[in-house]
Simulated assay, not measured.
Amino acid sequence: MVTTTYQVQGMTCGHCVSAVSAEVGAVTGVSDVQVDLATGRVTVTSESPLDTNAVRAAVDEAGYDLVDE
């Protein structure tokens, strides 16, 4: 299992958390998504390393921005 943390900008409420969790959770290989609304951190557990562009597209689909770290 691989755990990766991403920074997401623009989340302000529980609906934001649900939207990001659903979209990122739909990325192939993802087994768990934990969102920390206070920090904007999204921790993703997957079977193998994820393509950052796939995660970025999922976050974008949810209406938020993945911050490059």
Rank of each mutant, 00 (worst) to 15 (best):
T3P: 05
G29A: 15
A22S: 08
L66Y: 05
A58P: 14
V8L: 05
M11F: 00
T52V: 14
A26S: 11
T52E: 13
L50T: 05
A19Y: 00
E69H: 07
V8K: 00
A62K: 04
G29T: 15
A38I: 14
A62M: 09
V42H: 04
A58H: 05
D68G: 07
S31V: 12
D65P: 08
V55W: 07
T12I: 12
R56E: 15
V59M: 07
M1Q: 13
E61T: 11
E61L: 08
V59C: 01
T5A: 12
V33C: 06
A38E: 14
D32N: 12
T39F: 06
V44S: 01
V8A: 01
A57P: 10
A22E: 07
G10P: 08
L66P: 02
T5V: 15
D51I: 04
L37H: 05
V17R: 01
E23M: 04
V20S: 01
A19T: 02
T3V: 15
G63E: 10
M11H: 00
V35C: 01
V20T: 02
A57G: 09
T52I: 08
T4G: 03
T39I: 08
D65I: 15
T5S: 06
T5Q: 11
C16L: 01
V42F: 08
D60H: 10
V67I: 13
C13L: 02
S31W: 12
E47R: 15
L37S: 07
T39E: 09
D60S: 13
D36H: 13
G10I: 11
V17D: 04
G10C: 06
A58D: 15
D32R: 05
A62C: 12
G10V: 13
S18G: 14
T45D: 10
G25N: 00
E61G: 03
Q9S: 15
R56L: 10
Y64E: 05
G25D: 04
V27Q: 08
H15R: 04
A38T: 15
T43H: 03
Q7P: 07
A58G: 11
E23K: 09
T45S: 12
T39Q: 10
T12H: 09
V27T: 11
S48A: 10
M1H: 07
A38P: 13
C16T: 03
A57S: 14
T52Q: 13
T45R: 05
C16R: 01
Y6M: 03
V2W: 06
A62D: 08
T4E: 03
A57L: 07
V42G: 09
P49Y: 07
Y64W: 11
R56V: 15
G40Y: 10
A38M: 14
T5P: 09
D60P: 06
